[in-house]
Write a protein that binds this DNA or RNA. Structure first.
Lengths: 245, 245
DNA sequence: CGCAGAATTGAGACTGGTCAAAATTTGTGG
DNA sequence: CCACAAATTTTGACCAGTCTCAATTCTGCG
């Protein structure tokens, strides 16, 4: 094993496992062999970013790729007149900031205070070419991200407001289960405005739709940002375009 | 150089360069070294598929990845009640059919008669691990696809019908330029229904919007499927959410 | 020439957006 | 701990853009 390098010193050597990362078994880091991890750690920089601060902006030169260690990040694109579309939420263990054109295709902003690992694009490229395992893991992650984006395209293009909100709640619930959290009270870490910008709706419509689902007994609000999925089956039927219930 | 194997025999050995592929400099194949190409050719199967036929269906076991050699393919997702969203069009040189879950996340159908190269997922995985260059090229392609999907999310979630159609026409035009075709009369290889399913609109709204753009002098229809971009600048202004012109 | 499918046009309905106000929650300082 | 201010969320009334349903016109082809 190598001696600690300056970057380790800065953040304290986390040891053979990437302990700086809250993500569990499904993170790229967790799937890497100790050897692969070592390579990543060597080129890694750490940063803490406050809530509402940007990691990078759409159009900036893409000099680094990031992985999230804690908190939530939103990825968004802007139209000239301020209309915004959130193209994804990032959770611990996820990578973001890959680019095809040399500039970031979206803005990345912290929703909560977050911790990130920063990998310079060039150094990561070098490491990737030396570590086929890493390349393959990142590839798989990208494929999953693409499938997710396509799922969201179906939602944005073809679902009603009610279906969109139901689908989103269920997605959060499924994600919670994957992290071994309870399926039901679902935490909305993001604001109503972020929700609206993710679902292609206005904040008013999101609010009205939540009220409506509540009135119909499918959900209940423990707090505005904590939703109880009272009737998950009915919610599922709504999300799949199953009709009026 | 290796002797021709059965697959070559079937389709005629295309020689050191993948001549079976109409795609030019921007295809993955064209960027591969002769050596890398050789590996691809060995595991390649060829197929011709008639217009309107499916290459594979959403939900089927994903046993192969494809690259398009000629024609146009559409990728679509279905909702329970028949609502459809086209999540992408595939042009020669593009790969499609990657999956994260073991099943295809979308249906792939030929819009025109098409030629495809077929790569069994397992054999391609093996080749990828032996050919870092191939892996890197596919990775870059995926990143580009993801950026495209995110761009489309912005379109689906936040643009008006007029902006959607303008944006789509310009995208086709840009793509034509990249293939060294003229920017202006743009060919719509897909039906109005496909267009609607791609833009998250109904066929009627697409038709009305095209008529409106025509009336306003931004475009002219040479034929229903051949659009002249009379005023590309104005079109660009519309597509960027530039206002009423 | 006439038919079938595709595209366009028309009239009216409805979902979701806009603008405005009220209610609730959150944060801050006394 | 309370009071007040600011921000966020919810609710209301009205409007607009897009959809639905239906009819008409085009286009290609036997």
């Amino acid at each position: 094993m190598r001696a600690a390098d300056p970057l380790h010193a800065l953040s304290g050597d986390p040891g053979p496992v990437c302990r700086c990362c809250e993500a569990d078994d499904h993170s790229v880091c967790a799937s890497l062999t100790p050897e692969g991890l070592r390579g990543l750690r060597v080129i890694r920089g750490n940063a803490r970013i406050g809530a509402q601060d940007a990691v990078f902006h759409e159009g900036e030169a893409a000099e680094a790729v990031y992985s999230l260690t804690s908190g939530t990040v939103k990825l968004s694109k802007l139209l000239g007149d301020g209309r915004r579309q959130i193209v994804g939420f990032v959770f611990p263990g996820d990578f973001f900031g890959f680019d095809a054109e040399g500039t970031y295709p979206y803005t990345a902003e912290a929703i909560t205070p977050v911790g990130v690992c920063r990998f310079s694009t060039s150094r990561l490229a070098q490491l990737r070419s030396q570590t086929p395992e890493l390349e393959r893991l990142l590839f798989g992650r990208l494929v999953a991200d693409l499938a997710l984006a396509q799922e969201q395209m179906l939602l944005l293009g073809r679902m009603t407001a009610r279906e969109k909100v139901a689908h989103f709640l269920l997605t959060l619930s499924r994600r919670a289960v994957r992290r071994n959290d309870p399926a039901s009270p679902v935490a909305l870490t993001m604001s109503r405005q972020d929700l609206a910008d993710y679902l292609g709706l206005t904040i008013e419509t999101v609010s009205r739709t939540i009220t409506q689902l509540k009135r119909d007994g499918l959900i209940a609000l423990v707090r505005p940002e904590l939703v109880d999925l009272t009737d998950a089956d009915a919610l599922r039927r709504v999300a799949e375009g199953g009709g009026s219930d």
